[in-house]
């Protein structure tokens, strides 16, 4: 079956190009020029992943992500932005990103990543250690797994498959039936465990 992607960007030329590249690769692509359009599309239809810009008129990428999580919590989201660092990005990471790309990083990696994106495959990384989260995210994104991260409040709309903690985490008690893995384990080990966990539940 064809993979279905939602592409959100107010830069038409960029959106058209990416859509063309994804279609050439055999996917079906829906484009939206802003957050409102994207929310409408998400309400109507089910996608394998959403690719969104961050800075857009009206609803920003991170706000869009928050609202999308209310409608379709299991949707993998990739952020592609010209802005590689700002507060909104931190918020988006907390809400769960499959990956983040700079707009100039080229489409090859995006293509590969999207083809592996898994719906409803999210893990909560309970830590303030951003560098560690990024290491874990990098490995897990290649397996199609989305990481929500933070240390204070649980991201409100994240339904985790597992919790990754670097010590005692109060998040663990909030999700008693969810397995807890140690963030101190090698990234590859974490990846292998989660891969089989997600594969088992998908089957």
């Amino acid at each position: 079956m064809k993979r279905r992607y939602l592409l959100v960007d107010d830069n038409h030329a960029f959106a058209e190009n990416v859509a063309e590249i994804l279609s050439d690769a055999g996917a079906e692509v829906t484009c939206a020029a802003d957050g409102e359009g994207a929310l409408e599309a998400v309400s109507k239809s089910r996608f394998d992943a959403m690719v969104t810009d961050m800075k857009m008129p009206g609803v920003s990428g991170s706000e869009l992500l928050r609202r999308v999580r209310e409608r379709d919590p299991g949707l993998p989201v990739v952020l592609v932005s010209a802005y590689t660092r700002n507060e909104q990005l931190a918020e988006a990471r907390q809400l769960g990103l499959l990956a983040f790309f700079a707009k100039t990083s080229g489409p090859a990696e995006l293509l590969a990543l999207l083809s592996h994106a898994r719906r409803d495959a999210m893990v909560l990384a309970a830590t303030e250690d951003e560098a560690r989260v990024e290491q874990v995210r990098e490995t897990l994104s290649r397996l199609g797994i989305t990481v929500c991260s933070g240390s204070g409040e649980v991201p409100p709309i994240c339904k985790p498959r597992a919790i990754l903690a670097d010590g005692e985490s109060r998040w663990a008690s909030l999700f008693p039936s969810v397995p807890v893995f140690s963030l101190r384990d090698p990234v590859e080990t974490i990846g292998t465990r989660l891969d089989s966990l997600c594969a088992a539940s998908a089957a």
Partner: peptide, 11 residues
Amino acid sequence: ELRNPLGVIET
């Protein structure tokens, strides 16, 4: 902002 046009050229 320059990354936007560069992203288009790149793709």
